[in-house]
Design a protein around this nucleic acid. Sequence first.
DNA 1: ATGGTTGTTTAACAA
Length: 281
Amino acid sequence: MKDLCHTTSMKQKSQMRSFSIATWNINSIRFRLPLILQFLQIKKPDILCLQETKCPNAYFPTNFLNNAGYKYITFSGQKSYNGVAILGKLPFSTISKPDLCDKNDCRYITVTVNIGRKIHIHNFYIPAGGDEADPESNPQFAYKLEFLQKMKNIFNQNSYSSILTGDLNIAPLENDVWSHKKMLKTISHTLIETNSLKEIQIQGGWIDLIRNKIPEPKKIFTWWSYRSKNWKKSNRGRRIDHIWGSLDLVPYLNDIEIMQETRNWDKTSDHVPILANFTFT
DNA sequence: ATGGTTGTTTAACAA
């Protein structure tokens, strides 16, 4: 009897598969390489999606990251600006680097991983959009809206498990910003942006995994400006980094971590890492 | 109050 129980328990355990994915706008992968290595050592995610690598492909620090246990790496980088990358402990069966608006800026990269089920992962760095929330006078904002428009056309189907993550540069809900009323005219929280993002989410069948675990009215922030003297005291943050998943993934989501303590690290990013931890049975 | 800080690159830009 005891043996049988033991066998059953082992069998159940062997059928369980944990999977974790993290996202972090790192604001220069070369400048902050030690912080990335520290983060990987602490949290050991299976996949890390990075944004704002600010690194041409020829200079990407592949060897350091390989040595940290991330043998599978794909990146799309350019000089000075933008840049996205995906690091994996497990191999990618597909890789793509679509150029949504034909501008040759590196803001979107996808991979597929197979962990018994196939998961297609989209890593985005949506344009920030500049300062003035008027597409007529501000071409950066017009570009942001165009980028969002393109995202609507792509993700209206779900034939396999999918994750959409990254720095989306939009805080969609009232409790994703420190003051909803004061932020309504500030880029990242204007109605045209938040409505666009919600449309992309609904049309694509995406579930906001962070809010699935930590619903409103709890305030959640993933970014605090460098310009604040005391980011923690003033706490004027925004939730602009996201992890979305297809509906079939929701039952397997264990927890979400917002790794806020990294905001206090020396020479840190203005964004903090977010993790989603799954157990598949 | 239209400030404030940061990284890339080395003056100006994007965030």
